[in-house]
Each structure stands twice: as C-alpha cells, then as structure tokens.
C-alpha cells in the first residue's frame, strides 16, 4: 500500500497580522508628524542623506512600512516599494507582535536577536534614537520605563507635539 503524504499549507495569523499592519501605519504617520515638530528628531535626520529610505518589515516580506527623507522631513511611503537603504527586519510575526504590544521592549528585542538590521549600522543607531523619542510620544511613561533603557525626557511643551501626533498625525497623516 502506498503511504499518502500530502503537501501542508500552514494557515494564516490574521489577527496578529492586522495588529502589526496597524502599528506600522501608526508608526509611519507619527514619524512624519514628529519629524516636522520635534527638534531632537530633526537633529538626528539632518545627518541623513536626502532621499534616504528605511523600511521595517516582518520576515519574509510583509507586513512592512517604508519611510523616506524628503525636503528635510520624513514621509511615510506606505507598505510597498521594494528596497531601502536600511531595513529593520522582525524574524517572525510573533516577535513583531510582542514588541508592538509592548510585551517586549525594543532594546530587549535587539538583545534577543528578534530584530535584525540590514545596512549601515551607524544610521541604524540614529534611527533607533528617533524611534525611542517616538515611543515616548506614543506610550505613557510607565510603559516606556518598561520598554526603554532610559526613556528620553519629555518637557511640558512636547505635550503639544504629542497632541498633534495623536489628533492630526495618526488619523489624517498630517
């Protein structure tokens, strides 16, 4: 008798994919908003070349987020667009989910090799500093204490930037 052994098609993880996609959208839009207003982020991206593109993605290809520096600010370019100068890759959707639901800090994610960087490492360091500032806007302090080694300072006037990101940046992409 012939043993039957068929091809197996693994299912999908629709919920986790959706969460990660949503977070990418939020991140992309808030990168744009924050790069217009936050002086620390502005100072970081001053050193990047015009047209510099970075991408965050989940292995193998999606979900993803592409952001480009144009006319001195960061512009969210959606999830399609092939290659970038710098790519941050989550090795699995589970790792991305852990990070995006603040169950695993970004620095721990790097330390556990859940995330890897492909490209110029010194640019990646600059990008991570921007990301830390951004997380400070997006999450309350008690979460930041958990996910960052030392959360960046948040003087009172930055609350206006936070309000802008929440009310205009994320919902309308302004």
């Amino acid at each position: 008798m012939e043993t039957s052994c068929l091809l197996v098609k693994p299912g999908r993880k629709r919920f986790k994919s959706l969460v990660v996609k949503t977070v990418f959208l939020i991140l992309g839009r808030s990168f744009h908003a924050a790069s217009k207003l936050d002086l620390d982020i502005k100072k970081e991206i001053e050193t990047w070349d015009e047209g510099f593109k970075f991408m965050m993605k989940v292995f193998p290809e999606s979900p993803s987020m592409i952001v480009e520096k144009r006319k001195g600010i960061l512009v969210y370019r959606g999830s399609k667009g092939g290659s970038a100068d710098l790519t941050i890759i989550f090795k699995s959707i589970e790792s991305a989910f852990l990070v995006f639901t603040a169950q695993c800090g970004t620095c721990r994610a790097f330390a556990e090799s859940r995330v890897i960087v492909s490209g110029d490492i010194s640019k990646a360091m600059s990008l991570v500093r921007c990301l830390n500032i951004l997380q400070r806007y997006l999450f309350p302090l008690f979460i930041n204490r958990f996910i960052l080694k030392r959360p960046p300072s948040m003087p009172w006037y930055k609350q206006f930037i936070r309000a802008y990101i929440y009310l205009l940046g994320v919902p309308f992409g302004l």
Binding site: C107, F110, I121, S122, A124, M125, V128, K149, R150
Partner: peptide
C-alpha cells in the same frame, strides 16, 4: 561613540 552599533547591547542607556 554614540553611533557605534555595540551601544545597543550596553545594559545602561
């Protein structure tokens, strides 16, 4: 120094 990749793995910011 602050753009060196090894900083990522230092326990203190």
């Amino acid at each position: 120094a602050i753009n060196d990749g090894s900083l990522t793995f230092n326990p203190v910011e």
